[in-house]
Nucleic acid binder design. Structure first.
Lengths: 106, 106
DNA sequence: CTGCATCCGATAAGATACTG
DNA sequence: CAGTATCTTATCGGATGCAG
């Protein structure tokens, strides 16, 4: 039995996804583009500051795209890129696992 | 288009898995039981304290089991429970995604 | 030597108030 | 509405040390 090979890609992925709130934000965006306030309201205990930080990080990683619609008032929407949408199977995996193994009695 | 329903199981799962190092530790244990020092050595920059913390958390969650073999010197091994092993598909998903989308040029 | 406790500085998160 | 600035609080993680 050997160690798992150190895989930098895998570790990078974990580094991105394992930041607090990041995965939940992506999950929330899966159904489609959403505005800042909506994401904020959908995630209990997530402050505007942290959401702002995370969205910026995700934009840098190319997982989220920020669309500005110059209406009045201006409308800004966040949506997943293809790279972001490609994470859907991962969330299915987590969903399946949590459905089978997580008890809420605690 | 609706918000994703708030799913406490999913959020609990994310809370567990998204702690720094946790997923990498589980990944490292997938091939089989391992001792403390081996896990520590396999994960660059992971300190003994943090590993100890994480293993205790994972034990509480029923994801990892700690086996004590009363030899001299004592031998302690950590292994995944069925609940832990059930996470394997999740790591496949991350692996696939990172293989396809993560660039290391940065 | 291995596994873990304690201490403490660094970092991140949260509350609140404010701006374009 | 979509953030930012500032401050306080909580959490993390690295160094060290000690017990079995």
């Amino acid at each position: 039995m050997d160690d798992h090979q150190r895989c930098p890609r895998f570790e990078k992925a974990m580094e991105i996804l394992s930041k607090r709130w990041t995965a939940l934000i992506i999950f929330q965006l899966l159904p489609g583009p959403q505005r800042f306030a909506r994401i904020e309201n959908s995630l209990q205990n997530l402050s505007g500051k942290v959401l702002s930080d995370r969205l910026k990080e995700l934009e840098l990683e190319g997982i989220v795209k920020r669309d500005v619609y110059p209406e009045t008032p201006v409308r800004i929407e966040y949506r997943l890129t293809d790279k972001g949408k490609a994470l859907a199977p991962l969330f299915d995996s987590i969903s399946n696992w949590s459905g089978e193994w997580i008890q809420l009695s605690q």
